[in-house]
Computed example of a mutant assay.
Amino acid sequence: MIGFIGIAVIFIMVFGGYILAGGKMGIIMKALPFELMMIGGAALGAFLLSNDMAGVKHTAKDIGKVFKGPKWKHHDYRDLLCLLFELIRLARQNPVAIEEHIEAPAESTIFSKYPKILADKEAINLICDTMRSASMNYDDPHQVEEVLEKRMDANLHHALHSSHALQQVADGLPALGIVAAVLGVIKTMASIDQPPEVLGKMIGGALVGTFLGVFLAYGLVGPFSGKVKSVVEEDGHFYQLIREVLVANLHNHATNICIEVGRQNTPSHCRPSFSELEEALKDVKSGAA
Protein backbone atom coordinates (compact mmCIF):
# COMPACT_ATOMS: atom_id res chain seq x y z
CA MET A 1 0.00 0.00 0.00
CA ILE A 2 2.77 2.47 0.89
CA GLY A 3 4.25 1.94 -2.59
CA PHE A 4 1.04 2.98 -4.32
CA ILE A 5 0.74 5.99 -2.01
CA GLY A 6 4.29 7.04 -2.85
CA ILE A 7 3.64 6.85 -6.61
CA ALA A 8 0.41 8.82 -6.22
CA VAL A 9 2.19 11.56 -4.23
CA ILE A 10 4.91 11.85 -6.89
CA PHE A 11 2.44 12.32 -9.75
CA ILE A 12 0.13 14.62 -7.83
CA MET A 13 2.91 16.90 -6.61
CA VAL A 14 4.80 17.11 -9.91
CA PHE A 15 1.90 17.53 -12.31
CA GLY A 16 -0.34 19.28 -9.78
CA GLY A 17 2.33 21.89 -9.15
CA TYR A 18 2.85 22.30 -12.89
CA ILE A 19 -0.85 22.86 -13.54
CA LEU A 20 -1.27 25.21 -10.57
CA ALA A 21 1.65 27.26 -11.87
CA GLY A 22 -0.27 27.76 -15.12
CA GLY A 23 1.28 24.97 -17.17
CA LYS A 24 -0.76 23.30 -19.87
CA MET A 25 -0.89 19.52 -20.20
CA GLY A 26 -1.74 19.62 -23.89
CA ILE A 27 1.86 19.76 -25.15
CA ILE A 28 2.96 17.06 -22.71
CA MET A 29 0.10 14.71 -23.56
CA LYS A 30 0.66 15.15 -27.30
CA ALA A 31 4.37 14.38 -27.10
CA LEU A 32 4.18 11.78 -24.33
CA PRO A 33 3.37 8.63 -26.38
CA PHE A 34 6.26 9.21 -28.81
CA GLU A 35 8.77 10.27 -26.15
CA LEU A 36 7.77 7.36 -23.95
CA MET A 37 8.21 5.01 -26.89
CA MET A 38 11.73 6.26 -27.54
CA ILE A 39 12.91 6.56 -23.95
CA GLY A 40 11.04 3.61 -22.44
CA GLY A 41 11.76 1.39 -25.42
CA ALA A 42 15.46 2.22 -25.40
CA ALA A 43 15.63 1.65 -21.61
CA LEU A 44 13.89 -1.70 -21.99
CA GLY A 45 16.22 -2.70 -24.82
CA ALA A 46 19.29 -1.72 -22.78
CA PHE A 47 17.94 -3.68 -19.83
CA LEU A 48 17.45 -6.81 -21.96
CA LEU A 49 20.89 -6.33 -23.50
CA SER A 50 22.66 -6.17 -20.14
CA ASN A 51 20.87 -9.10 -18.46
CA ASP A 52 20.26 -12.76 -19.21
CA MET A 53 16.77 -14.27 -19.14
CA ALA A 54 17.15 -15.41 -15.52
CA GLY A 55 18.07 -11.86 -14.51
CA VAL A 56 15.11 -10.42 -16.43
CA LYS A 57 12.68 -12.81 -14.73
CA HIS A 58 14.26 -12.18 -11.35
CA THR A 59 13.92 -8.41 -11.74
CA ALA A 60 10.33 -8.62 -13.00
CA LYS A 61 9.43 -10.77 -9.99
CA ASP A 62 11.20 -8.50 -7.50
CA ILE A 63 9.34 -5.38 -8.66
CA GLY A 64 6.39 -6.76 -6.69
CA LYS A 65 8.44 -6.30 -3.50
CA VAL A 66 8.01 -2.55 -3.86
CA PHE A 67 4.33 -3.00 -3.08
CA LYS A 68 4.36 -6.16 -0.94
CA GLY A 69 7.25 -5.23 1.34
CA PRO A 70 9.38 -7.77 3.25
CA LYS A 71 8.38 -11.42 3.05
CA TRP A 72 9.07 -12.23 6.71
CA LYS A 73 6.84 -10.65 9.35
CA HIS A 74 6.85 -10.56 13.15
CA HIS A 75 5.09 -13.91 13.56
CA ASP A 76 7.46 -15.58 11.08
CA TYR A 77 10.47 -14.78 13.27
CA ARG A 78 8.63 -16.19 16.28
CA ASP A 79 7.76 -19.35 14.32
CA LEU A 80 11.38 -19.71 13.18
CA LEU A 81 12.63 -19.57 16.76
CA CYS A 82 10.07 -22.20 17.77
CA LEU A 83 11.11 -24.43 14.85
CA LEU A 84 14.79 -24.16 15.73
CA PHE A 85 13.98 -24.85 19.38
CA GLU A 86 12.22 -28.10 18.46
CA LEU A 87 15.02 -29.22 16.15
CA ILE A 88 17.86 -28.44 18.55
CA ARG A 89 16.08 -30.05 21.49
CA LEU A 90 15.38 -33.22 19.51
CA ALA A 91 18.95 -33.35 18.16
CA ARG A 92 20.32 -33.26 21.69
CA GLN A 93 17.83 -35.75 23.09
CA ASN A 94 17.98 -38.24 20.22
CA PRO A 95 20.61 -37.59 17.51
CA VAL A 96 19.27 -40.48 15.43
CA ALA A 97 15.68 -39.23 15.44
CA ILE A 98 16.64 -35.85 13.99
CA GLU A 99 17.88 -37.45 10.77
CA GLU A 100 14.42 -38.19 9.37
CA HIS A 101 13.48 -34.52 9.76
CA ILE A 102 16.57 -32.97 8.17
CA GLU A 103 16.77 -35.56 5.37
CA ALA A 104 13.12 -35.21 4.35
CA PRO A 105 11.83 -31.89 5.69
CA ALA A 106 8.76 -32.00 3.42
CA GLU A 107 7.61 -35.11 5.27
CA SER A 108 8.69 -33.93 8.72
CA THR A 109 6.07 -33.52 11.42
CA ILE A 110 8.15 -30.68 12.87
CA PHE A 111 8.68 -28.66 9.68
CA SER A 112 5.05 -29.19 8.60
CA LYS A 113 3.92 -27.07 11.57
CA TYR A 114 5.47 -24.06 9.84
CA PRO A 115 4.32 -24.17 6.19
CA LYS A 116 5.58 -20.71 5.23
CA ILE A 117 9.10 -21.52 6.39
CA LEU A 118 8.90 -24.97 4.81
CA ALA A 119 8.04 -23.36 1.46
CA ASP A 120 11.28 -21.33 1.53
CA LYS A 121 13.98 -23.59 0.07
CA GLU A 122 16.91 -21.45 1.18
CA ALA A 123 15.81 -21.36 4.83
CA ILE A 124 15.18 -25.11 4.89
CA ASN A 125 18.46 -25.93 3.15
CA LEU A 126 20.36 -23.66 5.51
CA ILE A 127 18.89 -25.38 8.56
CA CYS A 128 19.15 -28.94 7.27
CA ASP A 129 22.63 -28.63 5.76
CA THR A 130 24.06 -27.13 8.94
CA MET A 131 22.46 -29.69 11.25
CA ARG A 132 23.46 -32.53 8.93
CA SER A 133 27.07 -31.31 8.95
CA ALA A 134 27.01 -31.19 12.75
CA SER A 135 25.80 -34.80 12.86
CA MET A 136 28.80 -35.71 10.66
CA ASN A 137 31.16 -34.10 13.24
CA TYR A 138 31.72 -30.94 11.21
CA ASP A 139 30.88 -28.94 14.30
CA ASP A 140 33.64 -26.40 14.82
CA PRO A 141 31.53 -23.27 15.46
CA HIS A 142 34.05 -20.86 13.97
CA GLN A 143 34.44 -22.82 10.74
CA VAL A 144 30.70 -23.35 10.39
CA GLU A 145 30.04 -19.67 11.02
CA GLU A 146 32.54 -18.74 8.30
CA VAL A 147 30.93 -21.14 5.82
CA LEU A 148 27.45 -19.83 6.61
CA GLU A 149 28.65 -16.23 6.30
CA LYS A 150 30.08 -16.86 2.82
CA ARG A 151 26.94 -18.71 1.78
CA MET A 152 24.65 -15.90 2.89
CA ASP A 153 26.87 -13.26 1.29
CA ALA A 154 26.62 -15.13 -2.02
CA ASN A 155 22.85 -15.45 -1.67
CA LEU A 156 22.51 -11.76 -0.82
CA HIS A 157 24.66 -10.78 -3.81
CA HIS A 158 22.40 -12.83 -6.08
CA ALA A 159 19.23 -11.45 -4.50
CA LEU A 160 20.43 -7.86 -5.03
CA HIS A 161 20.88 -8.39 -8.78
CA SER A 162 17.44 -6.97 -9.56
CA SER A 163 18.16 -3.83 -7.53
CA HIS A 164 21.43 -3.29 -9.42
CA ALA A 165 19.70 -3.90 -12.75
CA LEU A 166 17.00 -1.33 -11.98
CA GLN A 167 19.61 1.17 -10.83
CA GLN A 168 21.48 0.76 -14.12
CA VAL A 169 18.27 1.61 -15.97
CA ALA A 170 17.70 4.61 -13.70
CA ASP A 171 21.25 5.85 -14.36
CA GLY A 172 20.72 5.65 -18.12
CA LEU A 173 17.26 7.23 -18.34
CA PRO A 174 18.36 10.92 -18.12
CA ALA A 175 20.80 10.36 -21.01
CA LEU A 176 18.11 8.62 -23.04
CA GLY A 177 15.84 11.60 -22.31
CA ILE A 178 18.51 13.86 -23.80
CA VAL A 179 18.68 11.62 -26.88
CA ALA A 180 14.92 11.96 -27.34
CA ALA A 181 15.15 15.73 -26.81
CA VAL A 182 17.94 16.06 -29.39
CA LEU A 183 15.85 14.17 -31.92
CA GLY A 184 13.02 16.58 -31.16
CA VAL A 185 15.33 19.55 -31.79
CA ILE A 186 16.45 17.98 -35.08
CA LYS A 187 12.81 17.67 -36.06
CA THR A 188 12.23 21.30 -35.07
CA MET A 189 15.21 22.52 -37.12
CA ALA A 190 13.76 20.82 -40.16
CA SER A 191 10.71 23.06 -39.73
CA ILE A 192 12.59 26.29 -39.05
CA ASP A 193 10.46 28.10 -41.65
CA GLN A 194 7.32 27.63 -39.55
CA PRO A 195 5.84 30.49 -37.47
CA PRO A 196 6.95 30.94 -33.82
CA GLU A 197 3.72 29.42 -32.47
CA VAL A 198 4.44 26.13 -34.26
CA LEU A 199 8.14 26.13 -33.38
CA GLY A 200 7.33 26.82 -29.72
CA LYS A 201 5.12 23.76 -29.51
CA MET A 202 7.72 21.62 -31.27
CA ILE A 203 10.49 22.75 -28.91
CA GLY A 204 8.17 22.17 -25.95
CA GLY A 205 7.48 18.65 -27.22
CA ALA A 206 11.25 18.04 -27.55
CA LEU A 207 11.82 19.16 -23.97
CA VAL A 208 9.26 16.60 -22.79
CA GLY A 209 11.94 14.00 -23.60
CA THR A 210 14.42 15.55 -21.16
CA PHE A 211 11.71 15.88 -18.53
CA LEU A 212 10.51 12.30 -18.98
CA GLY A 213 14.00 10.80 -18.73
CA VAL A 214 14.81 12.63 -15.50
CA PHE A 215 11.34 12.08 -14.05
CA LEU A 216 11.39 8.31 -14.67
CA ALA A 217 14.95 7.99 -13.36
CA TYR A 218 14.59 9.87 -10.08
CA GLY A 219 10.85 9.64 -9.55
CA LEU A 220 10.16 5.98 -10.29
CA VAL A 221 12.91 3.59 -11.38
CA GLY A 222 15.54 4.83 -8.90
CA PRO A 223 13.19 4.61 -5.92
CA PHE A 224 12.04 1.18 -7.12
CA SER A 225 15.67 0.04 -7.05
CA GLY A 226 16.18 1.43 -3.55
CA LYS A 227 13.01 -0.20 -2.24
CA VAL A 228 13.90 -3.60 -3.69
CA LYS A 229 17.34 -3.38 -2.08
CA SER A 230 15.81 -2.41 1.27
CA VAL A 231 13.34 -5.32 1.19
CA VAL A 232 16.01 -7.85 0.18
CA GLU A 233 18.32 -6.73 2.99
CA GLU A 234 15.42 -6.79 5.44
CA ASP A 235 14.54 -10.38 4.49
CA GLY A 236 18.22 -11.29 4.86
CA HIS A 237 17.89 -10.89 8.64
CA PHE A 238 15.72 -14.02 8.66
CA TYR A 239 18.61 -16.15 7.43
CA GLN A 240 21.08 -14.41 9.71
CA LEU A 241 18.91 -15.44 12.64
CA ILE A 242 19.22 -19.08 11.54
CA ARG A 243 22.99 -18.71 11.48
CA GLU A 244 23.14 -17.13 14.93
CA VAL A 245 21.02 -19.83 16.57
CA LEU A 246 22.76 -22.79 14.91
CA VAL A 247 26.23 -21.41 15.68
CA ALA A 248 25.20 -20.85 19.31
CA ASN A 249 24.06 -24.48 19.33
CA LEU A 250 27.51 -25.60 18.17
CA HIS A 251 28.98 -23.70 21.12
CA ASN A 252 26.93 -26.11 23.27
CA HIS A 253 24.90 -23.41 24.95
CA ALA A 254 21.62 -24.48 26.55
CA THR A 255 18.75 -24.71 24.06
CA ASN A 256 16.91 -21.78 25.63
CA ILE A 257 20.08 -19.68 25.46
CA CYS A 258 20.49 -20.48 21.75
CA ILE A 259 16.94 -19.30 21.10
CA GLU A 260 17.46 -16.17 23.19
CA VAL A 261 20.57 -15.37 21.13
CA GLY A 262 18.38 -15.59 18.03
CA ARG A 263 15.64 -13.44 19.58
CA GLN A 264 18.09 -10.69 20.48
CA ASN A 265 19.53 -10.74 16.95
CA THR A 266 16.07 -10.27 15.42
CA PRO A 267 15.37 -6.75 14.03
CA SER A 268 13.63 -4.70 16.72
CA HIS A 269 10.40 -4.19 14.78
CA CYS A 270 10.06 -7.97 14.21
CA ARG A 271 11.49 -9.17 17.54
CA PRO A 272 9.03 -11.12 19.70
CA SER A 273 9.04 -10.11 23.34
CA PHE A 274 10.59 -12.45 25.89
CA SER A 275 7.21 -13.31 27.39
CA GLU A 276 5.61 -13.83 23.96
CA LEU A 277 8.34 -16.24 22.95
CA GLU A 278 8.13 -18.04 26.28
CA GLU A 279 4.42 -18.64 25.72
CA ALA A 280 5.08 -19.91 22.21
CA LEU A 281 7.80 -22.28 23.44
CA LYS A 282 5.50 -23.57 26.18
CA ASP A 283 2.95 -24.45 23.49
CA VAL A 284 5.70 -26.23 21.56
CA LYS A 285 6.74 -28.22 24.64
CA SER A 286 3.15 -29.15 25.50
CA GLY A 287 2.50 -30.19 21.91
CA ALA A 288 5.61 -32.38 21.86
CA ALA A 289 4.61 -33.97 25.14
Rank of each mutant, 00 (worst) to 15 (best):
A123W: 07
H237A: 12
V179T: 13
G213V: 07
I27Y: 05
D171M: 07
N125I: 02
P267H: 07
D52M: 06
H253L: 15
A119Q: 13
A31T: 03
A180M: 05
R243Y: 02
A289K: 12
N155F: 10
E149M: 10
A119S: 15
H142D: 14
C82G: 07
L220Q: 00
D79C: 05
R151L: 13
C82K: 07
A97R: 06
V198S: 12
G226S: 09
F111M: 07
R151M: 12
C82W: 03
P95N: 06
K282E: 11
S191K: 13
D79Q: 14
G22T: 02
V169D: 07
V185Y: 06
G262I: 11
N265M: 12
I98G: 01
M29E: 04
L49A: 15
A288D: 10
A104W: 01
P33A: 03
K57G: 09
I203Y: 02
R89H: 06
H161S: 12
I124L: 03
A180T: 06
L212Q: 01
V169L: 05
G69N: 11
A154M: 11
P223M: 02
G17S: 07
I39A: 07
P141T: 10
L199S: 08
E122H: 13
L250M: 15
P267K: 05
D283Q: 13
S230E: 14
S230K: 11
C82Q: 12
N125E: 14
G40V: 04
L212I: 08
I63H: 03
M1Y: 00
K24E: 10
I124C: 13
V231Y: 00
A21W: 00
A254Q: 13
